[in-house]
Nucleic acid binder design. Structure first.
Lengths: 160, 160
DNA sequence: AAAGATTGAAATTTCAATCTTG
DNA sequence: CAAGATTGAAATTTCAATCTTT
């Protein structure tokens, strides 16, 4: 192994590493932009129902879990801070979409419970959201949708 | 085709459609959460460099394009509104990371130009970001990274 | 009139400090 | 003291109105 082949080798490796690194940078940028596009698209549609994307997700979470949830857990699930959820729940409660109830077993906890009105609004929101889902149906095969689901789930776990 | 087989058939289809629909809902929720996780992770690391995730992306964009960019184009690229970029560039300019220059060919336009200091900061930020990239390297094979890149690129185009 | 940017106000999110219960 | 939530202030993002140039 002469010096020159060594140099050749490392420069070759650097190139590969550089390319991989550039790819990862693109990936992170893409992740950032894709979500922002999705959010503004969904937000635009949800205006008709007078819900923001974040509020929509809170309602969906409450419905999918099927029982009242401590505010801290909601925050964790949406990957935001607790104080944000406190205020979001204020807004949702002001519109009668959720109510605060207290956990008898641990009186520090405040639980958010979805109301009937909240269910109805969330239902309408889900219908509105169908337009966005159509985009996914049209442009991605079932296999590709599964791939995305798998890869993003893993990403979520990695960074949880 | 009797009534009962027809009912069987449609209920079967509904089930499939329902499952697909639930999958798409999960996909959208995942997209939302993954980005938020990524952003808070990157933001946490970038605190050391005193940059936000969004600022980081602006600097990276300016570097990757290699020339001063009209504010409107930056907004479009980050999928945010123009007035937001006006104020972000205010903040970046206050720190000496970019400067405003005027387009002689179209005097309505204001271009953001990255400074030497901006380049240095962005360089440091990129190094800090390496920790996040490591997560991707460790948990995803090269093929999977390519898949993600391809699928997210497509998603970005669809909603552009 | 349309495109590009800015301004100031409103809404949302984050941060630090505080309060209550375990 | 730790966990959970709230409060008020600060930072960021969005919205509507305005200003300049094409």
């Amino acid at each position: 192994l002469t010096i020159s082949t060594f140099l050749l080798y490392t420069s070759h490796m650097n190139k590969i590493i550089g390319e991989e690194d550039a790819k990862l940078t693109r990936l992170l940028g893409l992740l950032y932009r894709t979500e922002r596009t999705a959010e503004s698209r969904v937000n635009g549609l949800l205006q008709a129902v007078d819900l923001t994307c974040a509020q929509h997700h809170v309602l969906q979470l409450l419905i999918s879990v099927g029982e009242p949830l401590p505010l801290g857990q909601i925050a964790e699930n949406l990957h935001t801070v607790r104080s944000n959820i406190t205020q979001m729940v204020d807004r949702l409660a002001a519109e009668g979409l959720v109510t605060r109830i207290f956990d008898p077993t641990d009186r520090r906890r405040v639980l958010a419970q979805i109301t009937e009105e909240g269910r109805r609004r969330s239902e309408t929101a889900a219908q509105v959201e169908n337009q966005v889902k159509q985009d996914l149906l049209v442009h991605f095969s079932p296999e590709e949708r599964d791939q995305l689901l798998t890869l993003l789930s893993r990403l979520e776990k990695v960074w949880k």
